[in-house]
């Protein structure tokens, strides 16, 4: 239970970073994943999951009023689910749970924003004190939202993974392969956003060659 609470506090704090407080991008999956792993004594697992989720969410940003998957929730839940398991599908199944729960997090953010519409004072009621109080209240409820969504995600994910972990039918390399193939779509979308292959082919291929050689020999 205290362990679950720890993920709740992390999910709440990092969820705040996404919109309400600071936007230092500690809420990005890379950072949130490593922090969650570190808090549970498994920073290596945290960065592994965080890096894969960061690939997926590389093209997802908190722009304006649109709904977006919540990266902090995705990472905290995925790492929280994975920690007690060591089967060959633990990482893949946890990342899948993170992707699903990131959408739940995004939905809860839109709900929070509807609630905030009622919290902020209107008209002459907007005096100094009430404005500060409304902001504090909105921030506290947003923290609780992130915490509850994360804890529910971790608890559900662990219950699910408990059933399949020992009976995972494929080699870990297959599970990782599926994740990489899914994440490759996001990398393609990023190049699309930057002008597409035809316009960017020289710089892209130069980088690609350097990456292939560099990752093997550096």
């Amino acid at each position: 239970m205290t362990e679950l609470l720890r993920f709740g506090v992390l999910g709440g704090l990092l969820g705040l970073d996404g919109t309400a407080v600071g936007q230092f991008m500690m809420s990005r999956p890379l950072v949130a994943g490593w922090l969650s792993g570190w808090a549970a004594g498994a920073p290596g697992l945290g960065i592994t999951i965080g890096a894969i989720l960061e690939l997926f969410l590389l093209v997802s940003f908190p722009t304006g009023g649109a709904r977006f998957p919540e990266g902090s929730t995705a990472a905290v839940v995925a790492v929280g689910v994975a920690v007690p398991f060591d089967g060959s599908g633990a990482v893949a199944a946890s990342v899948a749970m993170g992707l699903v729960w990131g959408e739940v997090g995004g939905w809860s953010v839109t709900m929070q924003r509807r609630v905030n519409s009622r919290l902020v004072p209107t008209g002459v009621a907007s005096r100094t004190g009430s404005l500060g109080r409304a902001h504090l209240l909105a921030i506290v409820t947003d923290f609780l939202r992130g915490a509850v969504v994360s804890m529910v995600g971790v608890a559900l994910g662990r219950a699910g993974l408990g059933v399949v972990d020992a009976r995972w039918p494929v080699d870990p390399s297959v599970s990782t392969g599926v994740l990489y193939v899914g994440a490759a779509v996001s990398l393609g979308i990023l190049l699309h956003d930057l002008g597409g292959f035809r316009r960017r082919r020289i710089l892209f291929v130069l980088g690609l060659a350097f990456g292939i050689v560099g990752a093997r020999f550096l």
């Binding site: 690939l55 990489y180 994440a183 490759a184 990398l187 990023l190 190049l191 930057l194 002008g195 960017r200 710089l203 892209f204 291929v205 130069l206 980088g207 690609l208 060659a209 350097f210 990456g211 292939i212 050689v213 560099g214 990752a215």
Partner: peptide, 11 residues
């Protein structure tokens, strides 16, 4: 764009 290429190569 270069960074994205390097990342794809590294992955």
């Amino acid at each position: 764009v270069i960074g994205l290429g390097v990342l794809c190569g590294a992955v």
